[in-house]
Design a protein around this nucleic acid. Structure first.
Lengths: 234, 234
DNA sequence: AAGTGGTCTAGACCACTGA
DNA sequence: CAGTGGTCTAGACCACTTG
């Protein structure tokens, strides 16, 4: 029922959602028409549409012109993963910035020629004085740019592109794998050569599909599993 | 400008979005008021609100009552990850279903007592006749339920909960780590004991926070990195 | 033809914010 | 106080789907 002070469209939204979560309405089922609902709740079509649009933006229902509204198939394989650079409780104790010529792997990842220089930024992330992750980033080095020191804040990834283009005009791709460290990585993480590591590759891509950043993060798995979730909330 | 046949609210939406992606409007900036925009585009407030609501549902803008609309801070650390059970081009060549008493790890994951039996479902996923992943799932075994054979379709995870509750009334948590296989896992994946594996843990949780399923998937990393992406699309 | 959703108008009143 | 967004109405016309 309509609670005092609560907008009517919220009440309608909630009641319909309850029916979906309660199994009264199931995937594929048709909802009552807008006019039907407007009559039921003694309100206008606009208010009903407001409620339905909320449900639609949560992927709970969808509409077909001329036919009606239908309950969606639930998406239980789509996960949401938060992967932040600035981890709370962790400390970045070491930074190194270099301009250098890229290795083949880095050249490929950034889709650049071998004569194009790159800036390499290495960081060791520690917790309780023990290294838990090694983060290496590469960004193409444009001549006539500020000094290397000024590039330090590029350690946080989105800033790289944000500095060159509009803040929304790029996206990121991520690949997650499991690998054993090479000697250099093992040394910096103070682990043995057969310690399995989570490795996260990141590609920063601008609006014209140019690669503007490449990052590799080696994570000691026992200190940092990645978390993701899917599903719907009442 | 307003193209023929295109709804006005879409035109307005697109023009505003272009300004955001083009860097004309930046995070924190205030948009013109609804009345302002209605005047500019010679339309009603309702149409303007429709456009703004679209932008809001994409997290490009947000509104504050009494103040106005503002450009959001971009969320470049929120990733979208699709983790499907039925992989195209892969084959499930082996299935085993057992009712058994759970190990400690499984008991903890499902939050059940040691006298509660569970059903174990093992699957080996192959590609070109080579194993690429091992998938083990556990679901609490309720007495007086159908035979084990009938539980085979539970191999696909969401179905487990969907069979017991409404299709929307549950969610999933996922943890991703890197581990070395034990002997049993190595044997089934036909790999050595120091092959690093991606390990994906899944918890299927119903609306009253009960664990209704637990899954472990060991993935040979070289054949199946996980992909995720973030960002905005024009 | 009747019913559906999609678009749009021209108002109204309210709650909230800031000067 | 004036200006903002939030809610809501009572219509209208269109495009689409189905019988």
């Amino acid at each position: 029922m309509h609670k005092m002070g609560e907008p009517l469209h919220v009440t309608i939204y909630t009641e319909l959602k309850s029916k979906i979560f309660g199994g009264v309405l199931n995937p594929g089922d048709m909802l009552p028409s807008e006019n039907e609902l407007a009559k039921q709740y003694d309100t206008s079509r606009v208010t009903i549409r407001k409620s339905l649009q909320s449900l639609e933006s949560e992927n709970l229902i969808y509409s077909c012109q001329g036919k009606g509204y239908f309950i969606s198939q639930p998406l239980h394989n789509d996960f949401y993963l938060h992967f932040s650079e600035e981890e709370r409780g962790f400390e970045v104790t070491y930074k190194k910035v270099d301009a250098c010529f890229p290795s083949d792997r880095v050249r490929q990842a950034l889709e650049i020629g071998s004569s194009q220089m790159v800036i390499e930024i290495r960081r060791v992330i520690k917790k309780y004085d023990r290294p838990v992750a090694l983060d290496i980033k590469y960004i193409p080095y444009d001549k006539g740019k500020p000094t290397l020191e000024a590039e330090l804040h590029y350690a946080v990834f989105p800033d790289i592109a944000a500095a060159k283009t509009a803040p929304f005009a790029f996206h990121t791709r991520m690949e997650i794998g499991a690998e054993l460290p090479d000697e250099s990585v093992a040394r910096q993480l103070q682990c043995s050569l057969n310690t399995p590591l989570l490795v996260v590759y990141r590609y920063l891509i601008d609006q014209s599909e140019r690669r503007v950043g490449y990052g590799i993060k080696y994570i000691l798995s026992e200190y940092g599993r990645l978390d993701a979730k899917s599903g719907y909330e009442l």
